[in-house]
Design a protein around this nucleic acid. Sequence first.
DNA 1: GCTCACCGTCAGGATGCCGTGAGGACCGGC
DNA 2: GCCGGTCCTCACGGCATCCTGACGGTGAGC
Lengths: 238, 238
Amino acid sequence: MKILIADDDPQILRALGITLTAHGYEVAVAHDGRQAISEAAAQHPDLIVLDLGMPHLTGIDVIVAVRGWSAVPILVVSGRADSADKVDALDAGADDYVTKPFAIDELLARIRALTRRTPAQSDEPVVRFGDITVDLAAHQVLRAPDAGSSAEPAIVRLTPTEWKMLEVLVRSPRRLVTRTTLLTEVWGPQYTNDTGYLRLYVSQLRKKLEPDPAHPRYLLTESGMGYRFVPDEEPAPN
Amino acid sequence: MKILIADDDPQILRALGITLTAHGYEVAVAHDGRQAISEAAAQHPDLIVLDLGMPHLTGIDVIVAVRGWSAVPILVVSGRADSADKVDALDAGADDYVTKPFAIDELLARIRALTRRTPAQSDEPVVRFGDITVDLAAHQVLRAPDAGSSAEPAIVRLTPTEWKMLEVLVRSPRRLVTRTTLLTEVWGPQYTNDTGYLRLYVSQLRKKLEPDPAHPRYLLTESGMGYRFVPDEEPAPN
DNA sequence: GCTCACCGTCAGGATGCCGTGAGGACCGGC
DNA sequence: GCCGGTCCTCACGGCATCCTGACGGTGAGC
């Protein structure tokens, strides 16, 4: 769940960012109206927390611009408590309006209320290699059936640890992933020196994903350093 | 566009009724919590303006009850400005919270904001799997009769908790639903660690929905991660 | 050819998670 | 007050997952 915070006060920006991150949200920021619009377009946030009093563009302009192409929930935060301001913002397309100063608990509750109506729709990518399809959003791995057969794609069952490991590798295609980063990402920050699980789980992943586990083609090992996920470049029709 | 106003103060009730009628809304009224629930069920309003401080039932109870079967927008009006009250109401399922005294213009703008958002999601689908039909809009689950029999579809009775859980799963077909998201969606944002209810309700849902509860086909469990609803694709030959 | 470090794989046991039944607490209806 | 329904707690058997230890293979350096 990604939230875009648009505010020209760096202090508020920072405080809000910390709070939202602590509550499990992914956070993007913008310092003025123009940036708010471009970030909203680039990041596809699931919600926008928008300060009305920003330079370059008024908050109303930002709302109208974003509403031009997106139905993302917009929560306006403003120092002005005048009802005319609220009416203007809400009628421009905002979904909620909170006046400063506000209780952070209330803001969080309002964020939950708004995101409750439009759940998820994350645009996580789908990674393909060989006859394997990794769907990051659905947490699912599928194996395409043999060519010519019209059977269903088969579900590849992964254990939680196997999945986390595959996720880390697949999110950094073609890049070397150090043994220590793999350990900390999958098992936690306190795990730093390998005692053998890495080799085990790489082995099991290869057994489940590689066409020929003995000669890996996608999950490569860099001796002494770590592992590397390499998707096949061109389709390789041969 | 029909709005249900629930308030025990006849003066406010009357003033709001006149204003809303003048703005083209159809108006229904309730004088206490119990009546609010029954009117909401009978009238199917497009929005509910709910006073928190009513006799017979607290406003929170009304929200929870209505949310048990309906997603109608709920705008809470209350004399209490304490942020804890706001958080409780919003987390119970309210969509907005306005403190008295309020400007009538602002209330109207918030009503417009809430009603603007809902028609977009009026495409409540009907989900089918096996001999089960889940009607999200009607909040009903039906089991088709045996083939050849000309009997009526039987209604499958679900408790409120079972329904919420099924709804969350069915709304994300094929996607893994984490244990924590299930908990927060069904029991509320403050519930985050399982103490066993999840397993219990999944078990009961399977007992009511699965053709063979011992070998689930639609409500699958991903050990260590969560659950997944998988509708059947095409018949899947061989 | 030898050593050594590193990697891949297998099997077995410990741990934690899952499904399910029984029973108590609570609440609204009669 | 009694009763039916719903929700939750607790306990137990079964199983998936995880980790450990051991063994063999490979390649680099000498």
